[in-house]
């Protein structure tokens, strides 16, 4: 199974350059010549130091940002415009504050022209699946951070996207809620095996969730610097698996590779600051 044939989503030589502050000033090359691919049903994590361009890459994959060079391939076809096969769970809160939880979850169905009554029913079903039955009438500001993330997850999953793009979705949560959500995610994912691109800077999270991890170098001119298959058995419990010897061994290996990049990123930010 070569990635080229099985890839649902592939980035091919992606480069992104932000324009310089003044006209004529040199631009800022955030990422350079990045190629990665996700197989069908694969859970891929992308790990890199802060500011290295992870969100930028995901925006490119979603079709929200046109790359300066390279191409995005979705099921082998070159992407132009938005990536209609992908669902995107954003790093920041992205719920519509003027719609309650149910209306937020059903939004995608309504946009697609599904009957309001049926959309309603399916939204309630999804709220139940993410553990929020009974909270449908609450507005986002009346929900906790963890609840909002669950609503956002239901909002994306209800459309049954082939590809799930997730940008540090659990970064703002406390450790307990976070592990709960990670387990929920794994359960939902294993039921329907979507392809996932999961972005994080938390290596432990990446190892406990993924099939494969791609490491990105520090900014600028970010590119992949390593790829690690994670051969931990499934189904996994994210809290328990962290205690297994194999996990610790993988963690040690990947961390050694990542450490250098984190230090580099830190040095750059020191110099700039």
């Amino acid at each position: 199974m070569t990635p080229a044939t099985a890839a649902v989503l592939a980035l091919d030589g992606i480069g992104v350059e932000w324009p310089g502050s003044a006209p004529g000033a040199p631009g800022y090359v955030a990422v350079e010549d990045v190629s990665l691919s996700v197989g069908r049903g694969e859970f891929l994590s992308v790990v890199g130091p802060t500011g290295c361009g992870k969100s930028t890459l995901l925006n490119v994959a979603a079709g929200l940002l046109a790359p300066s060079s390279g191409a995005v391939l979705v099921a082998g076809e070159r992407l132009s415009g938005l990536n209609r096969r992908a669902g995107y769970l954003f790093q920041a809160d992205a719920l519509m504050p003027w719609r309650n939880a149910r209306e937020n979850v059903e939004a995608g169905l309504i946009f697609a022209g599904v009957e309001p009554e049926q959309a309603h029913r399916r939204a309630d079903e999804w709220l139940r699946r993410v553990g929020l039955s009974g909270f449908g009438d609450r507005y986002p500001h009346q929900l906790s951070g963890g609840m909002r993330k669950r609503v956002a997850l239901a909002q994306v999953l209800i459309l049954e996207p082939e590809i799930l793009l997730m940008d540090e979705p659990f970064a703002a949560l406390d450790v307990q809620t976070r592990q709960l959500m990670e387990n929920e995610l794994l359960e939902l994912w294993s039921a329907e095996r979507r392809s996932v691109v999961f972005i994080t800077h938390d290596l432990e999270e990446a190892i406990s969730l993924s099939d494969r991890i791609v490491l990105l170098s520090a900014a600028p001119r970010t590119r992949p610097i390593g790829e690690f298959p994670i051969d931990l058995p499934r189904p996994r419990d994210v809290a328990e698996i962290r205690l297994t010897p194999r996990f610790l061994e993988l963690h040690g290996r990947i961390w050694a590779a990542l450490r250098a990049e984190v230090l580099k990123a830190y040095a750059v930010s020191q110099r700039l600051g």
């Binding site: 929200l64 938005l82 719920l95 504050p97 939004a107």
Partner: peptide
Amino acid sequence: VLASVRMLG
């Protein structure tokens, strides 16, 4: 929010 709603189709 805008990007998210666009991604929802």
